[in-house]
Write a protein that binds this DNA or RNA. Structure first.
Lengths: 261, 261
DNA sequence: CCAATAGTGTCTATGAGACACTATCAG
DNA sequence: CTGATAGTGTCTCATAGACACTATTGG
């Protein structure tokens, strides 16, 4: 047991980490979520079909050669794991400045055949429009988007099935408690789009009077605001409907939730 | 740059991590919070003065010898970082089965003079009654409880000031969105005690009609329940007051919060 | 004029928030 | 009978939740 190195080691300025078994790397794994919209085959304008998907890459090397895995890579000594994750995300998808967040460490012994690897897991939320250009550029055989059902049915490399499920649970919770839904929406969106995105990530989210609560209650006033043009007229969109719908955008307001009030 | 080792390395079953710069250890740091109660010097029964405190240890070795630091230690290859944190918590305080939770990784280059150390930070919530026995046993000069103000004013070892502030922000948020307040309370408690604990951790938490909301509104019904004896009579406590107060306990109910409903 | 989306009217029951008020009881 | 804690009465206004209803407009 090499616990308490810093307390039970002999007192020495010449601390030498090489005396101990040390990790064989500090990998990051990034669960990249996106929501794809596919137009339903109808003559009239309709809301698209949306699906939550995760980006996976096909491994070309041992270990788990040929298996699908979460994108990621090894952290350098000169960067933080957060910087590493952002770098890997950019390399994999070409996007920057998206919502990326650390959520857990995976450190089960033998989770990686290459050695003692404690993985730092992140999730990222990427808008499909930002992802689409990269999709074409990549080798389609090696990068793929999969629905949650598809991914859950696959045998991913390492403990990536577990990481994916944990990430999914996390974003489901955050989807309704924070404003991260904005990552899956254009800056200006309609209430239906917002509602659809929420339902796509959290299937059992249901609010029958959603439009009223979001637009005409004090407590939620401030999360989103109506978009108006310079003349102060409401801006509308009819991209999904005959009747034009009011456009909204998220504000910077961060609501405080509490189980006690 | 040794990024993407697993993809850009030559194909080889004889992967050798020693070819790369690897971390020099996988330390954990544990922010152990407790709430102390000290009776106010009064003749009559009063509510105690409560204060949120954090447990720190005085380092005996290089680096940062003599400085106060968060307790923690190095993870072994045979355990997860979560197991390591629980082990260290038990060694430091003697308590098991308390709320301990992972919340972030600290990986800034050069955060540790001993080498490349990515620290896994946990916070733990320990009831003062569980901590009191250990307090006497420990060398008082080396283990101490400090208020948030005291600790923030100290120059802690490593980046432990940052870790402490992050942990504090996290438990402040969780204190009002989850039922972790139970960690600082006896199993059976009065409404005043609960309210006091909430205010101790989150100073700007204020609910003037707290007792009504918690006891007589549908939406919160289920978080706590009245304690009754076998005969079905309400159990009361007068430990802090002349007039006896109803005792409550937390249920297993986990409320779902949402900014959209 | 239909289908699909957008949005309103209206009702009831419940809760939020404010503030004054009563209850208990050791010292 | 005072001080400290515990808890209630009562008011107004806002909101939740349900459900039927109207509005818009391309095809």
């Amino acid at each position: 047991m090499n616990e308490n190195i810093d307390q039970e080691d002999d007192v020495s300025v010449n601390y030498n980490a090489r005396k101990y078994r040390t990790p064989d790397g500090a990998p990051t794994d990034i669960v990249i979520f996106t929501i794809t919209s596919t137009d339903r085959a109808k003559a009239k304008k309709t809301l698209p079909h949306r699906e939550l998907q995760v980006l996976l890459i096909k491994r070309k090397r041992w270990p788990f050669e040929g298996r699908w895995a979460l994108p990621g890579g090894f952290t350098n000594e000169t960067e933080t794991v957060h910087e590493c994750a952002k770098r890997e995300l950019c390399e994999e998808t070409g996007v920057k400045n998206v919502h990326i967040e650390y959520f857990n460490a995976y450190s089960a012994p033998n989770r990686d055949p290459r050695g003692w690897m404690i993985s730092h897991a992140f999730f990222a939320l990427v808008n499909e429009v930002e992802l689409s250009s990269r999709e074409a550029a990549s080798d389609a055989a090696e990068v793929g988007l999969f629905s949650m059902d598809e991914a859950a049915a696959m045998e991913l490399a390492f403990d990536h099935n577990l990481i994916l499920q944990d990430a999914l649970a996390r974003i489901r919770e955050m989807m309704v408690t924070t404003t991260i839904a904005k990552s899956f929406l254009p800056v200006e969106f309609t209430i239906s789009e917002l509602y659809q995105v929420l339902q796509t990530v959290v299937p059992d989210f249901e609010e029958r009077n959603f439009i009223r609560k979001i637009t005409s209650t004090q407590s939620r006033r401030g999360i989103i605001e109506e978009v108006r043009n310079r003349a102060g007229e409401p801006m509308l969109s009819n991209r999904h409907s005959q009747r034009a719908a009011q456009l909204y955008r998220f504000t910077d307001y961060v609501p405080r939730l509490s189980i006690y009030s």
